[in-house]
Design a binder for these strands. Structure first.
Length: 203
DNA sequence: ATACCGATTAACT
DNA sequence: GTTAATCGGTATA
């Protein structure tokens, strides 16, 4: 057991689907604005680089915004969606192989007071950090954090020894990527069984 | 300079 | 189940 910060050997691997499944049960931790906050990852989606029509890097496209996806694994990629929502991604694989994982939901764990203040809520519920936009608000993440190394002391991931059974990690098509044609159907979304998630909110 | 649109959310019925 | 809100990024000229 114990707490182990994930290092580049974890992020530099080539199988983004494998890494995405392993992220369920890991902890996303931030130390932003003097507040230490964290959440356990319960949902994430894989974006498989230049061959994935749903990826910002499809076809090898490079723009000022998506340039970060081409960085080495272990880098934070945060971008603005619908003009309002800051979506946090983990870049994986080696430099110039633009794999990324969108973190879509966490269960709040550390710094609950700060999280509730940021979300302007009184109590923790499933709504506090269960979407890609809301978890960024909860943990204080915004586009200014894009390009940061996850080895930095502002945003990082931890393994706290929690392991779920394979059957409790469900796969399904990704959300909001209908424009990606055939690739919209790929089972690249990973999430924890709802019954197990409920137990974490009871604690 | 201008036009289009999205890896979403919250508040509805 | 439906839908309005909202604006930076991107492409096109």
């Amino acid at each position: 057991m114990g707490i182990k910060k994930l290092e580049s050997d974890f992020y530099l691997r080539t199988n983004v689907l494998q890494i995405t499944s392993e992220l369920i049960g890991k902890f996303l931790v931030t130390n932003i604005d003097g507040q230490l906050t964290s959440g356990m990852i319960i949902e994430a989606e894989a974006y498989n680089g230049v061959i994935d029509k749903a990826s910002h890097a499809y076809g090898g496209k490079r723009t000022k915004r998506n340039e970060i996806i081409y960085a080495d694994g272990g880098t934070s990629y945060v971008y603005l969606c619908y003009g309002i929502h800051h979506l946090f991604n983990v870049v994986t694989n080696k430099k110039d192989t633009p794999h990324a994982i969108l973190i879509r939901g966490v269960v709040p764990v550390d710094g609950i007071d700060a999280i509730l203040e940021r979300r302007m809520q009184d109590t923790v519920s499933k709504k506090t950090a269960s979407g890609p936009g809301t978890l960024s608000v909860a943990l204080g993440i915004n586009t200014s954090h894009s390009g940061l190394s996850l080895d930095d002391n502002q945003i990082w991931l931890e393994d706290r020894g929690i392991v779920f059974k394979k059957k409790d990690i469900l796969t399904s098509p990704r959300i909001g990527v209908d424009y990606a044609g055939e690739d919209a159907k790929l089972p690249y979304r990973f999430r924890l069984n709802e019954d197990i998630i409920k137990d974490f909110y009871k604690k």
